[in-house]
C-alpha cells in the first residue's frame, strides 16, 4: 500500500471513529446513568461508584406497591412480541411461496391487495380497529392480532422466492413431496436469511410499539415495558435512575439479538436492499 493511501485510510478511520462516538453516545450515557448512585444520576458523566441500585429497584426491592410491575411488563413485552414475529414469518412463508411458486386462480388479486395495503396510510384504520378490538381490550389477543401480519414481511418473502429457481420446487414435487412437505423441507431452509431478518424486525417493531399497546392494554397488569416506561415517565421524574435502567432493559435485548444474528442476516440484509 502506498503511503499516501495509508494516511488517507487513517484519516477515514479517524472520522468514522468520531462519528461512531456521537452515534453511540446516547446509549453509553443511558447505560452509565443506569449504574450511577442515585444522588448523582444526570449530575455527572463519570461513573466512579457503579451500583446496581436502579436495577434492584426495578426487580422489586424498592417498589412496595406493585413489586413485580417491571418484571411483569418485561414478560408482557415478550409474550406479545414472540407470537407476532412467529406469525409474520409463517404467514410470509405461506403467502410468499404460494404467490410465486403455485398456479391458482386469483393470485393476481392477492398480489394486488398486498401492494395496496402496503402503500395504504395505516393511520385511517386506527380508530375503527380500536373499536373493533375493544372486546379484547386488556387481553394479549387484542394486542397481538391486529399487528401480527405485515405486508412488508410478506413482500420480503415474495421477492426472495422469485429469485429461487422454479425447477427446485418442481423437482421436489416429482420426488413425491406434498406442498406442505415442500414448505417445511425446502422453502423454510432456503429462506433462512430472510426469516432471520423478518423475525428480528417484526420482533423489534412489536417490542417498540407504543400507541396500539397504550390503547388496547391500559391495565397496568397488561402493559408492555415500552408502555410502562412511558406511563411512569412523568411521575418518576424524580427517580431518573430506574428510568434509565428500564430503558437499558428495553434496548439491550434487541441490540443483542441483532448482533448475535448479524452473521445470519448479512446475506438477508444485502438482499433486502436490492
Amino acid at each position: 500500500m502506498k503511503r499516501s493511501s495509508k494516511i488517507k485510510t487513517g484519516i477515514l478511520i479517524a472520522i468514522t471513529a468520531v462519528l461512531l462516538v456521537f452515534s453511540l453516545f446516547p446509549l453509553f450515557y443511558m447505560v452509565i446513568q443506569s449504574l450511577m448512585p442515585w444522588d448523582q444520576v444526570d449530575k455527572s458523566m463519570v461513573l466512579s461508584h457503579p451500583t446496581m441500585k436502579s436495577y434492584q429497584y426495578l426487580l422489586g426491592s424498592g417498589n412496595s406497591s406493585d413489586a413485580f410491575m417491571w418484571v411483569r411488563s418485561l414478560l408482557n413485552s415478550l409474550i406479545v412480541s414472540v407470537p407476532t414475529a412467529v406469525v409474520s414469518v409463517l404467514v410470509g412463508l405461506c403467502v410468499g411461496y404460494s404467490v410465486t411458486k403455485l398456479h391458482f386462480r386469483g393470485k393476481k388479486i392477492i398480489y394486488e391487495s398486498l401492494l395496496f395495503q402496503m402503500f395504504f396510510p395505516g393511520v385511517i384504520l386506527l380508530v375503527p380497529r380500536y373499536i373493533l378490538i375493544k372486546p379484547l381490550a386488556n387481553h394479549y389477543l387484542g394486542m397481538i392480532l391486529p399487528l401480527c401480519i405485515s405486508t412488508w414481511a410478506i413482500f420480503m418473502y415474495i421477492n426472495y422466492f422469485t429469485t429461487l429457481p422454479n425447477e427446485l420446487f418442481e423437482a421436489a414435487k416429482i420426488d413425491g413431496l406434498g406442498e406442505f412437505g415442500i414448505i417445511l423441507k425446502i422453502a423454510m431452509p432456503m429462506t433462512k436469511s430472510v426469516t432471520t431478518i423478518v423475525f428480528l424486525s417484526m420482533f423489534m417493531a412489536r417490542w417498540n410499539e407504543l400507541m396500539w399497546d397504550m390503547l388496547v392494554a391500559p391495565d397496568i397488569k397488561m402493559q408492555t415495558l415500552n408502555v410502562l416506561i412511558s406511563t411512569q415517565f412523568r411521575t418518576m421524574g424524580n427517580f431518573p435512575g430506574p428510568m434509565y435502567a428500564a430503558s437499558v432493559l428495553l434496548t439491550l435485548p434487541i441490540i443483542i439479538m441483532f448482533l448475535c444474528a448479524s452473521k445470519h442476516f448479512k446475506e438477508g440484509i444485502s438482499f433486502m436492499l436490492k
Binding site: S23, L27, D42
Partner: peptide, 21 residues
Amino acid sequence: VLFFIPYLTSGVATSVVIRFF
C-alpha cells in the same frame, strides 16, 4: 452494523435519555 444500532432503540428509551439529559 455499529452505525445501525441507533435504529434498534425504542423511541421511548431515547426520550427518557433526552428528557433527563
